[in-house]
Design a protein around this nucleic acid. Structure first.
Lengths: 220, 220
DNA sequence: AATTGGTTTAACCGTTTGGTTGAACCTGCC
DNA sequence: GGCAGGTTCAACCAAACGGTTAAACCAATT
């Protein structure tokens, strides 16, 4: 789970002071829950337990605050579980690690996920530069996964699927049920009564469905 | 594609006047693009080409306007492509119709989709009653699909998968790439240059991946 | 022609919100 | 002690926003 050769959560924020970190966490929470427009500077200040003027002292205005919070969230996404993915020996293992990695990341970073989805829903103007850096780095989970799919297709370990579409499909199934959690919980009884249990069951289901969908038939 | 025994888009709004329909469309657009908090009454009025006071004349305030727009959007979701799904003879056909139905619905109702996702992201307090009615009606695509999955499992046409999880997985893959469109288009070259083509390719990929994932191995 | 009831408009109002100001307050340093 | 730089705060401000008002308009009805 821990990637010792990648920056940890704390490292990523090393450049920030204690007060700035407080503001950061508060801002992420409020932006994620209320949306970019719905977030109130006063509420962020309250949540960070500081005066409202301090917000504008540390971050000039709402836009730059949002920009920095978003940038940090993006960096956090990139830094997650890349290494363990590379080391996976078989494609089955790759798929397991990828599913587990994404589901666990979203489970423990729901606010980050909400921020990301909100940004996309609003047009995603802040995404550009970050995604390009992600693409350039070559170390992010999505890229590694695509490479692994390509290799597995070449070796015949899985069928001749489109790697990019496969990536989108797998990520979708790992994240979307968190996005639609209220709907899922209204329709699905078990999800409502024990979400943790539901998430675990879902990881099993996903591996089963997707692995079976990717692997060739036993014989013919 | 057309379900003659279900209310059409026009029917659903028959109770509304011309002006109200204008307001409706404008409100949906603005709420979907700017979010519930980010939407401005003035902007909705401008988009509907009426005076701002008219908004408050027809819909008492922002909350009731949002509530009505959301309720209408919900009804539209329920009324889509249920019948053709029931008539599908094989499970393969069921899956094809379901994928095609959902993808096409979201493609042609992106604002409705955005509204729905936004509502879920914000906690989904408006969902309750509507989803219960959907559950009670028994005619909505998700329920029909679950029944078809159960039947196909029983007949051995597909493997012993969990029908509810399968439903969530299929819907996720049909919708999430629309939600994350800006990200997908930044990463995927073809999606950026020709989105329509990408959507078509995606439908093919999804059927292939999911059908293969659900169906038993050819032999053993 | 006068009345009625729904519709439309410009001007207005009170509150909320993002952002500013200027003074007070530390803390380390000479 | 006294200065200097960064930090904290209550009070303040202008703009934006949701919502209201009162008068005007217009098509039926009598």
């Amino acid at each position: 789970m821990a990637d010792s050769n990648l920056p940890s959560d704390a490292d990523l924020r090393a450049e920030y002071s204690e007060t700035e970190r407080q503001i950061f966490d508060a801002a992420l929470r409020v932006f994620a829950r209320k949306g970019r427009a719905g977030a109130r500077m006063q509420e962020i200040a309250d949540a960070a337990d500081i005066n409202k003027a301090m917000l504008h002292y540390y971050f000039r205005n709402k836009e730059t605050l949002y920009g920095e919070v978003f940038a940090f969230t993006m960096r956090r996404f990139m830094a997650s579980f890349g290494a363990s993915l590379k080391e996976a020996p078989t494609f089955a293992e790759t798929l397991r690690v990828f599913i587990d990695g994404y589901v666990e990341f979203v489970r423990t970073n729901q606010d980050a996920m909400r921020l990301m989805v909100n940004e996309n829903l609003a047009g995603g103007t802040h995404l550009g530069e970050h995604l390009k850096r992600l693409k350039a780095s070559g170390d992010a989970p999505p890229q590694i996964f695509v490479e692994k799919v390509e290799a597995a297709v070449a070796s015949g370990e899985i069928r001749a699927v489109d790697p990019d579409h496969t990536l989108v499909s797998v990520i979708s199934t790992c994240i979307f049920f968190f996005v639609m959690r209220p709907t899922v919980q209204t329709i699905h009884a078990e999800a409502a009564s024990d979400w943790g249990e539901f998430v675990e069951a879902r990881k099993e289901h996903l591996f089963d469905l997707l692995y079976h969908g990717l692997v060739p038939d036993a014989d013919a």
